Computed example of a mutant assay.
Amino acid sequence: MKPFHRSLMCVMYAGLAGCVPWPHHYLTAPRITGTVVEAGQPVAGAHIQLADVLDESGEPAPGARKQEVVADAQGHFTVGPIRRFAWSAHVPVLTVTQNTVPWGLRLSTDGRSFRAGWLSDPSLFGEVLEVPIVATCDLSAAGKSSVIEGYKSLVGNGPCELAAESKK
């Protein structure tokens, strides 16, 4: 076999084995649908910001990707998902989907001063869920620690309660 063909075969086998960097997009924050209320009443015009990297104080980290939406007259919103581009070698047998989950929601009634809606614990490891998340955010509620039901590693703090959308 000619040297060129041997080299081509090696590259093909390496590609099939997942040893060659390949461009792809990976999920850094999920799609979230929800409602913003205050004392049981919908908050029309509330600003909801999803960021894929927040620090412990709830501010977007330098280089964080953000999406911002405004709630409709009933307080409903949909934001996300956020994906990032990467070149990496994907080896299915060795791939681990656990990674830090520093994403979170921020809420504002004026579009300028944001407060935590749900900030994930950046010290924990978990997965960014592929299924949509449903959020219920009550601006009159004090922030509290909560877990996305069924996902013990997805712990956060804030007035929003999150749940993974069930498949029907």
Rank of each mutant, 00 (worst) to 15 (best):
V43M: 08
P122C: 00
A89N: 04
V131K: 06
P23H: 11
T33Q: 14
K152G: 14
T109L: 14
V131C: 03
G104D: 10
V70R: 15
F77E: 03
A86P: 04
V101F: 03
K144R: 15
G111D: 13
R65A: 14
T33H: 10
P21S: 12
P81G: 02
A44V: 02
T100W: 02
W87A: 00
T28W: 02
V101N: 02
N99R: 13
E59I: 08
P132N: 04
P92I: 03
P122I: 06
R115E: 14
T95Y: 12
Q49A: 07
T35R: 15
P92C: 09
A64Q: 07
Y151A: 07
V131S: 12
V131W: 08
P132W: 02
G75F: 04
V96Q: 11
E38A: 13
G117M: 08
L8P: 00
L105S: 01
T97L: 08
F114T: 07
V79H: 00
D121K: 01
P62D: 15
T28K: 01
W103M: 03
L27G: 08
D121S: 08
L139N: 11
Q49H: 03
A39N: 15
R112V: 13
A135L: 05
E56R: 07
E59V: 10
K144D: 14
G75M: 04
G117I: 05
D138E: 12
A135G: 09
L105A: 05
